[in-house]
C-alpha cells in the first residue's frame, strides 16, 4: 500500500463520515456554538487572565502574588 493511498483512505474516512452524518450535524452545530460562546464570548469578554492582563513579566506577577500572600487579610465580616 503506498503513502498516497493511505492518505486518500484517511481523507475519505473523514470526508464520507462528515458527508453522511445525520444526528452528527446537529451535534457539530452544538459543539461549534458552544466553542464560540466559550472561546469568543466568555474568554474574550469575561475571562481575561488576571495576572496576564495586569502584569507584563513573571517577576511582576510573582511580586504581586507575594504581596497578596504576605499582606494580612481580614474578611469584611470577620
Amino acid at each position: 500500500m503506498n503513502r498516497s493511498n493511505i492518505f486518500n483512505r484517511i481523507f475519505h474516512l473523514y470526508y464520507d463520515g462528515f458527508k453522511n452524518m445525520t444526528i452528527g450535524r446537529k451535534l457539530w452545530t452544538i459543539i461549534l456554538i458552544k466553542l464560540f460562546i466559550f472561546f469568543v464570548v466568555f474568554k474574550v469578554f469575561f475571562f481575561s487572565d488576571f495576572l496576564e492582563t495586569h502584569f507584563k513579566t513573571d517577576v511582576e506577577k510573582s511580586d504581586y502574588v507575594l504581596k497578596q500572600l504576605t499582606s494580612p487579610k481580614q474578611l469584611k465580616n470577620d
Binding site: F42, F47, D49, F50, V65, Q68, L69
Partner: peptide, 18 residues
Amino acid sequence: GIILEFEFGTNWSNYSWF
C-alpha cells in the same frame, strides 16, 4: 471543563500562580 481553566486564571489567579 475548559471553563474551569478559565476560572483558574480569572477568579483564582493567586492559586494559579502559586
